[in-house]
Amino acid sequence: MKYTPFNSTALLITCGLSLSTLSSCKKDSPVVRDNKPRLVKAFSLDSQGLSRQIEFAGQIEPVYESRKAFEVPGRIIRTHVRDGETITKGQLLAELDPRDYEADLESATAVYESAISVVNRIKTINERQSGAISKQELELAQRDVRTATAAMHRAQKALDDTKMYADFSGKVAKVLTDDFANVAAKQDVLIIQDDSELVIAIEVPESALMIPIEGNTAAEKVNNSQPRMVMSNLPDLSIPLVFREASTSPDPATRTYTIRLQFTPENGSPVKSGMTAKVIANIPPSKLLKTAGFGVPSSAVFFNNDGAANVWKITEDMKVSSVTVTLGAADSGLIAIEGDLKQGDLLATTGTGFLTENQSVRIWQNKTELNTLKQ
């Protein structure tokens, strides 16, 4: 084999030409940068702040309920109403056998008439012969009249009490006794309710009463929380509530306060007394709770090199500008922020870590979200 010596000079020249060629190619083909606006999702600021909700279980009650009982004992001869029956104020509900009370009234009336007769006789005698009967005897006879009058009135009231009438218009919730049953005085016979207005009673712990809500009275604080009632088996039903009353001392066992919230059921409403439901109340934004300002998605917040929290505000010319913010409480994916922002400002909520100052952006939202932004 013939040996050919290695020509290093030729190799260097060849490599030099190749590098020169590559260099000239690079100069002739400059890199093209992507100047298209970056797609981002946006969030519109409103004035709601970061509202929270608190829930309580409760039971529905009538505003007015009366447990009806006779004031006197006796035997029920007739109950005029049945469970669920609609009643009107003054309607006769039930009756006791009145015969014993009629006899008592007759006897008391006879004693009264006798006492009146004695007084009249004394007056007549004294008119004919002055001083024939002493003044003391006349006073005793007049006292007997007063005593007999009171007895007659008691007998009349007892007879009247053998009939039971409705205190108000409403419905019969429950008849508790049967006809011809003997009942004692003050024994519950039936329950009537006014179901035109209802309340829901909830038990509120001490900790909930300490939540700072605007208002000077319990009624103002409760109403400012915009309470509403919902029921698990009626998911589309949401009934606004207003404050009615609240206990001023807690239950010694549970340390809770009873609050009653009132509402007016619509005609034909399935909501009835005795049902259970849930009360949802809003806790308005508060500086004390660090929920004031604007509630924004946590993805809208980023931190700069100094560790300060910022958001990207989208300007009218569709560029982003960083705004330093103070962070507050977080809840359900939202975080409260305060800074140089106003209602209606748009914030970028995607790609915040890749945006730069004054970078052009283009908002992308699905149809529902876009409509929400425009509202």
Rank of each mutant, 00 (worst) to 15 (best):
F6V: 12
N7L: 04
S8K: 15
T14L: 15
T14V: 14
T14A: 15
S20G: 15
D28K: 11
S29G: 11
D34S: 07
P37G: 07
V40F: 01
V40S: 02
A42N: 03
F43Y: 14
F56Q: 06
G58M: 04
Q59M: 13
Q59C: 07
P62H: 02
A69D: 01
V72D: 00
I76S: 00
I76Q: 04
I77S: 02
R78E: 13
T79V: 13
T79G: 05
R82A: 12
D83K: 10
A94M: 01
E95M: 09
Y101W: 09
S107I: 12
S117C: 09
T124W: 08
G131S: 04
E139R: 14
E139C: 02
L140W: 10
T147V: 15
A150P: 02
A150N: 12
R154D: 09
A158Y: 00
A158N: 08
L159H: 00
D160G: 07
D161C: 10
F168A: 02
K174F: 02
L176R: 03
T177G: 00
V183E: 02
V183N: 01
K186I: 07
K186E: 13
Q187K: 06
Q187C: 02
L190Q: 05
L190E: 03
I192R: 00
D195H: 09
E197L: 15
E197V: 11
P205G: 04
S207Q: 07
S207C: 10
M210H: 09
I211P: 05
G215D: 04
N216W: 06
P227M: 01
S232G: 10
P250N: 10
R255V: 03
R260M: 08
L261C: 05
F263Y: 11
P265V: 04
P265F: 03
E266V: 14
V271G: 06
K272Y: 04
G274F: 03
I280V: 12
A281D: 01
S286F: 03
S286T: 03
T291F: 01
G293M: 02
V296L: 04
P297S: 08
S298R: 14
N305R: 09
N305Y: 06
A308W: 10
A309R: 02
T315P: 05
T315Y: 08
D317F: 05
S321T: 07
V323S: 08
L327D: 00
Q343C: 11
G344A: 08
A348Q: 05
E357Y: 09
S360L: 13
R362P: 08
N366P: 12
E369V: 05
N371I: 08
N371H: 15
T372D: 14
